[in-house]
Design a protein around this nucleic acid. Structure first.
Lengths: 120, 120
DNA sequence: CAGTATCCTGGACGATACTG
DNA sequence: CAGTATCGTCCAGGATACTG
């Protein structure tokens, strides 16, 4: 099978795309990311960041000051995935309404050939 | 929060992107899709198709012949998401190797400051 | 052929507590 | 501050059996 699946799994995990999005405008500290994501647990943020680091999409830099300071930054590779991701986001923004309407229509449709007159 | 999440969830689910990909070159029957996806269970294929239909990305047409015949086809909206998705696939193909190497490097790195001489 | 109905499992994800 | 460790939950997704 194609490598698509791996990639899709990458984007799939709940926070990766958001993290990458937040890193687009420069490096950020762990705490900053945690605050900006709002809703993410330390565990998931850490895990997401580790995976991204492992995949070579971001770098992790530790400044051994006190208190500790860790910065995450997109690599060249990381920046390159930014564009396809942005395309997807753009599509989302443009078509969100349409999808929402489609859902309403679909959901309000008779569950299956149930005539209006039929009382049940 | 932004609509991105909804969209990402959409792409995230294991088969949606693949199904859309398979429908790019014209309508397909349930069985065709099942064969081409190879590995998908009826349940997941059905579920994926229902969701796509609900979101207005595909249409479901039943031809009440015997045996039954059902065709799925991308809608205009469905075709429009094809491009961002293709961009992602392209990125995947181009960078798959790089990511794989990054992973190897990362994984073979000393788990943390363990000197070569240390026998443990 | 194209589903629906059930049951079950693994892993994603969250909450909480502790640490260098 | 930036994590690690642990435990518990939920549900996506697979296997199997049945049906119009």
């Amino acid at each position: 099978m194609c490598p698509c699946r791996d990639l899709l799994d990458m984007v799939a995990s709940k926070w990766t795309a958001l993290v990458i999005g937040d890193l687009e405008d420069g490096p950020k500290r762990f705490g900053e990311l945690k605050r900006r994501l709002e809703g993410v647990s330390q565990k998931m943020l850490t895990q997401t960041l580790r995976t991204l680091e492992r995949d070579g999409l971001i770098t992790r830099t530790v400044y051994p000051s006190v208190p500790l300071r860790v910065e995450y930054e997109l690599t060249e590779l990381g920046r390159s995935v930014t564009e396809p991701l942005a395309a997807l986001r753009l599509w989302a923004q443009k078509n969100y309404e349409t999808v929402a309407e489609a859902r309403e229509t679909f959901d309000s449709a008779a569950p299956v050939g149930l005539e209006p007159a039929v009382t049940r």
